[in-house]
């Protein structure tokens, strides 16, 4: 996923520098400023987290020490590469990654921007103690802002792209949730389940199937799960309940589409499937179904 997203929209290094009007001089200015801060770089973390603790969303996003440690060390890496100012593909890639990370944890963009401007304050007011001439200092301020703009552009671009992708994935998951129970033969109902089965969906399926059984008095119901994303304990229990309910209404439920991998995980998880009839393919289930209702199928 990371590689795909980089290729799709991330332009060349030159393009990015051009957009933000960054010239070799600017990069040199950023480096000079970095050199003036020198060894004090690691102090950034202390200042940054002192500020962060005053923010209400702090605990929400940085609650455990293990994660915090990793975040902090990658933050130092991030700013070191910033003041190294070697804008190459690897540099751009780390900014893409930052955008992805923020999108995944759902960090709001305002929090990110607040963090960036606070970092600017820390570097220019807290860690800088002189060393550049007034002209050099003024020039480096402008160059730092330009490079910061390049960084944030990539981060935000990636962020919005990924959020849009997640949104699309969620809508797709929801769209797949329709439950078209179909009578494919006299007395045989079928429902292919695609996507995810959560408790709401399981209830929808149950209600739709039972209503259809009531209406058609079907004797066989085939539920094909070859398109189901995950069969864990909870999902299996939902499926077992559906088979029980249909059985009580006089309709035998078969589950088709069990791959060998799913058969294995079901047994390893210790799920008791009882007397639920299962088959690997829909075809096998259909054959059993035809036998149950007393229809014999032969090739013409």
């Amino acid at each position: 996923m990371t590689n795909e997203s980089q290729g799709e929209f991330l332009g060349s290094v030159e393009e990015h520098l051009l957009i933000h009007g960054i010239k070799p001089d600017d990069l040199e200015n950023v480096r000079k400023f970095g050199a003036a801060i020198g060894d004090r770089m690691p102090e950034y973390i202390r200042h940054f987290y002192a500020w962060l603790e005053t923010r209400p969303d702090y605990r929400e996003y940085f609650h455990d020490g293990d994660l915090l440690g990793r975040v902090q060390s990658s933050q130092i890496d991030h700013w070191q590469s910033f003041f190294d100012a070697r804008v190459d593909e690897a540099y751009l890639a780390t900014r893409v990654q930052l955008g992805e990370a923020h999108a995944r944890i759902g960090l709001p963009l305002p929090s990110y921007f607040a963090g960036v401007s606070q970092s600017f304050v820390i570097f220019t007011e807290k860690l800088y103690e002189g060393g550049l001439s007034p002209e050099e200092h003024a020039a480096s301020m402008i160059s730092i802002v330009k490079l910061l703009n390049l960084d944030t552009t990539i981060v935000v671009d990636t962020f919005s792209k990924l959020v849009a992708e997640q949104f699309a994935e969620q809508s797709m998951a929801l769209a797949e949730m329709s439950t078209p129970v179909t009578a494919i033969w006299d007395d045989i109902l079928m429902l292919p389940i695609v996507g995810i089965i959560d408790s709401n969906r399981a209830q929808d399926v149950m209600a739709a199937v039972l209503a259809k059984i009531m209406e058609t008095r079907a004797k066989v119901f085939i539920m094909d799960i070859s398109g189901v994303a995950v069969v864990d304990t909870a999902v299996a229990n939902h499926l077992i309940k559906i088979t029980k309910a249909t059985k009580l209404m006089g309709c035998e439920c078969m589950i088709s589409g069990l791959s060998p991998a799913i058969a294995q995980t079901i047994v390893d998880l210790g799920i008791e499937t009882g007397d639920v009839r299962t088959t690997t393919t829909l075809r096998d289930a259909l054959e059993v179904g035809f036998a149950t209702i007393g229809v014999s199928v032969s090739r013409a």
């Binding site: 050199a35 770089m41 590469s81």
Partner: peptide, 16 residues
């Protein structure tokens, strides 16, 4: 001087 290339942190975090 600062020479380290940032190590790519390859962990993925999803909030649930």
């Amino acid at each position: 001087m600062l020479r380290t290339t940032p190590a790519r942190d390859q962990s993925h975090v999803h909030r649930i």
